[in-house]
Amino acid sequence: MSINEEVEALRRVPFFAAVDPAKIKLLAFASEQQSFAAGATIFREGDPGDAAYLLLEGEAAVMAAAPDGLHKVASIPRNAFLGEIAILCNIPRTATVVAAEPIRALKIGKDAFLQLMRDVPQIAFELMRELAVRLDETTDRLREAQARLKKAGMA
């Protein structure tokens, strides 16, 4: 498994798309490739966020705790980037993510990621745009949920 494959995968991540390939390669070099067996936990809710992951192979599942155990609430496809929020603002993991099938992932350490962001402000800019989009989506969903609640309350 060579580094070039990782570089390709990283370039498919929206906020890395416009970054100088040498820098992407450097990030890949500074990262670590890890394999998870199906069902293995990638990170747990409440853990300190020390790294982000890029799924190179396989699919992961986001789990939420319920009284009767963990339940799958969403799935993360191949080539997705996950865990970047926790390393950005130093908060614990907000959800548990497990491997739905055997996974290979690139583990990008917090220090390396932040350093690269400092070196290439463009990444920060792209990341900000991405987060803004997500925030907008979340706000929409919140509004929708509030509307539904209101309706339910009125009914």
């Binding site: 040498a22 390669k25 450097l26 070099f29 500074a30 220090d111 390396a112 350093q115 070196d119």
Partner: peptide
């Protein structure tokens, strides 16, 4: 990889 980095870069 490292050509363009400043010499004191932590990498």
């Amino acid at each position: 990889l490292f050509r363009d980095l400043p010499p004191d870069h932590p990498f």
